[in-house]
Design a binder for these strands. Structure first.
Lengths: 247, 247
DNA sequence: TCATCGGGTTGACGTGGATCAAACGCAGAG
DNA sequence: CTCTGCGTTTGATCCACGTCAACCCGATGA
């Protein structure tokens, strides 16, 4: 678990399955809803599902019915093509949504896999559409979430298309750091839930290259790295490195 | 202009600005709407806008108000970061939507630029949200469009992360071919609206590499290339090349 | 205690694509 | 018609990252 700097997001073991009760509601779909609207949303989130590390939340090819909100834990999504190649398309943490890719064709287009024991709220999509016809705020928020996913993907495309290895890793770490921070955890110290191989897949690099970049960052005093435990020592340095013109 | 194999999608110079009149309605937002619903949609599309080659439809940083449906012409979108690097994130043709990236933050996150003289329908987003609260079909279709954009982006990430230069170009050409075909144009012969540099930017390659790949394809009898005019001679060959395991 | 195993690190070497540079060819201007 | 300029092609060289291989380290279990 990451070092926490506040306790706001902890204490996951609440009894009732209800958005109105959920301490994630500032991160998740219910953002900005009124009390009565929140109550309606409660009916929406029908199922909670627990997954163990390594479990699939869904697989590419499976019929799409629900999107999922990560309640606790950590996921990766990946796509694979016939010839065996695959790529990690994202890592999802608390409060983030999974499954948006399935809307377009009624079939999931990627795998979603728990990287640690996790819990999700299943949100039947047709219900969500129904409710968002009633609640403008919910509708608009949902549209924003989808759009944000598109913008995020553009960022990854940028990273894959124009950045060199160390820049990619710096960008990745800064992004993780910022997301941990937003959840009340330390932005400077955390441990990675994913392997070097998975990071490499996400960043379009081989695991050896990722490992070497970590070592270099450590040598330069930007990070301390012990296995999957990361401590960011020089955020500004990472940021500078990231936005340095190649050459 | 691309060689047309049917005339279904031509004759853009209709008088009335109305979805119900538009010969693109099988490609665009109105898919699957009933006549009376289509009539409501007509009121939605308030503005038509003409652009000359090189004109910006919108710029990164501008406030977001509308999404745009390409009525005729060809666009690219690109993002840039402070240090001057930029990347083309997509090419949009007839019937495709532009501006979805702006929903998340109420501000456009990329530039959209016409690659030839073009025309778009502006769809005020708040109106679209309003109408899609009334028309389930429209709502669902819009969600599918957004989701499809996410899936498309995952495909590009895959391409950028795992494919080598020639595979990327093959994938790009096959994708273009298929989109031309869907619009009633020849899938085998078309001319590119974008420069080698823009293709390279999209594919994460330098323009020289793109040019060399074109030459190689020509040498191997897969294509004939004259400037921007492309003729696909061996689709299966391209497809095979695309999905060949590296090494 | 040691053996095993999977993930991680490190080194040596090869290569695909970037970089640098020159020449080409088509289009528009005079 | 030639001149000019930009997009493209092609060649020579370089280098970042991939590949292959050895080794390390912490966890697990007999």
């Amino acid at each position: 678990m990451s070092t926490k700097s506040t306790t706001a997001v902890l204490a996951f073991e609440v009894v009732k399955t209800a958005c109105s009760n959920c301490n994630l509601r500032e991160l998740c779909l219910p953002i900005g809803l009124e009390a009565d609207e929140l109550k309606k949303l409660d009916e929406l989130v029908s199922t909670r599902r627990r997954l163990k590390r390594g479990d699939y939340l869904y697989r590419a090819g499976q019929g799409f019915e629900s999107i999922y909100a990560v309640r606790s834990g950590f996921f990766k999504t990946d796509v694979l093509i016939e010839d065996g190649r695959d790529q990690v398309t994202g890592f999802q943490m608390t409060g983030e949504l999974l499954g948006l890719d399935g809307i377009s064709s009624e079939v999931h287009s990627c795998n979603a896999i728990a990287l640690e024991d996790s819990e999700v709220c299943a949100i039947p999509f047709s219900h969500l559409e129904g409710l968002s016809r009633q609640i403008h705020t919910l509708q608009h928020h949902f549209h924003k979430v989808m759009s944000r996913e598109i913008v995020r993907d553009h960022g990854v495309m940028m990273l894959l298309g124009t950045m060199r290895a160390e820049e990619r890793l710096a960008a990745f770490l800064l992004n993780l750091s910022q997301r941990f921070k937003a959840r009340g955890y330390s932005p400077a110290e955390f441990n990675l839930r994913m392997s070097r191989d998975e990071i490499g897949s996400y960043l379009g690099l081989k695991l050896e290259t990722v490992s070497r970049a970590f070592s270099r960052f450590q040598d330069e005093g930007l990070l301390s790295v012990h296995q999957r435990r990361i401590r960011i020592l020089n955020t500004a340095g990472l940021r500078r490195l990231m936005s340095h013109q190649r050459g």
